[in-house]
């Protein structure tokens, strides 16, 4: 589990840049994969992908760049967490942890939701912020997600989810677990409305979130080298008492094992999404014809 929380180079705290300050061009960043140094500006120009191909983690705000400039309208930003279990122990205080995360990221919780366009196509979007308690899913994440889906249904928009997470948030206990049911429950309505859900899985993407909405999308895209899985690598290694191959639980591994539709380099993502949205766009006649045939079918696949 520890390696999930391996941060990028210490100099990079993307969320802290939101006051609009310029990052000095003479800062170097060390790639966690190949160890090479790159100028910050050069790295940013390359979408924080190292020359070696390693895709560094982006903050939720940085991901907004994949949407048409100026098109993003944030929704439900006022939703904020509480401490439903009164989670206090000798070493861990949820209320304090929240305050720290909120101060560090400038967000109320670990999910940003809203609507936007990509190449002119409207979408409902959710983006998780790994920097906020590991992008973990608690009550606010689940509620924002459900509202985003309900809006998508109301507006007739496709849903794009960008997910980077360690899983369900421990500090909210079984309330977090039930968000797995809540998110999927909302998605049944998206499916009934014949609206597509495109899921982009980025490093790392694990556990209860992968085992809920992220794995039932109509199209699942993963970033190269992203670590994606249900059980943490260390848990499995402890269970089987052997080291796992480096390739295990990477996006490429998942592609080989039939679990994702495609692995797309970051530079090609926007084009890919635009293409998909064009393909899913409904002509009025096609929509009318498609609906009745499905009513008979017993089970709606998401």
């Amino acid at each position: 589990m520890k390696d999930l929380f391996r941060r990028g180079p210490k100099r990079f705290t993307p969320a802290a840049r939101d006051n609009g300050q310029d990052i000095p061009d003479n800062m170097w960043v060390k790639c966690p994969s190949c160890g090479d140094l790159t100028y910050v500006k050069q790295l940013n120009d390359n979408l924080k992908v190292c020359k070696c191909g390693h895709h560094m983690r982006l903050s939720a705000r940085e991901w907004l760049g994949i949407l048409d400039a100026g098109s993003f309208i944030e929704e439900d930003a006022e939703l904020a967490p509480v401490d439903p279990l009164g989670f206090v122990s000798a070493k861990d205080n949820y209320a304090e942890k929240l305050r720290t995360a909120q101060k560090n990221t400038g967000l109320n919780d670990s999910l940003i939701a809203g609507r936007a366009t990509i190449d002119g196509h409207p979408v409902q979007v959710t983006i998780s912020e790994f920097g906020f308690i590991g992008g973990s899913m608690g009550s606010v994440y689940g509620e924002k997600f459900a509202r985003a889906v309900e809006r998508a249904v109301e507006l007739g928009y496709p849903l794009l989810t960008i997910t980077s997470t360690g899983g369900a948030r421990q500090h909210e206990g079984v309330l977090s677990l039930m968000q797995m049911a809540k998110t999927n429950m909302a998605l049944t309505r998206l499916a009934a409305a014949r609206l597509p859900h495109i899921a982009l899985l980025v490093d790392p993407c694990y556990a209860g979130v992968l085992a809920s909405y992220a794995s039932v999308a109509d199209v699942i895209i993963a970033e190269p080298g992203a670590n994606i899985g249900f059980a943490g690598r260390r848990v499995i290694e402890q269970t089987i008492r052997q080291k796992l191959p480096a390739h295990f639980q990477t996006a490429e591994f998942l592609l080989e094992h039939g679990m994702v539709d495609m692995v797309v380099p970051r530079a090609e993502l926007r084009t890919t999404l635009a293409k998909l949205l064009r393909l899913y766009k409904r002509e009025p006649d096609r929509a009318r014809a498609a609906a009745p045939a499905f009513e008979e079918h017993a089970v709606l696949k998401a």
Binding site: A77, E78, L79, V82, E172
Partner: peptide
């Protein structure tokens, strides 16, 4: 299912 609050001053992402 889920417990949350709504804050007066929204913490806007962008």
């Amino acid at each position: 299912i889920g417990k949350f609050q709504e804050r007066q001053r929204a913490s806007l992402a962008v």
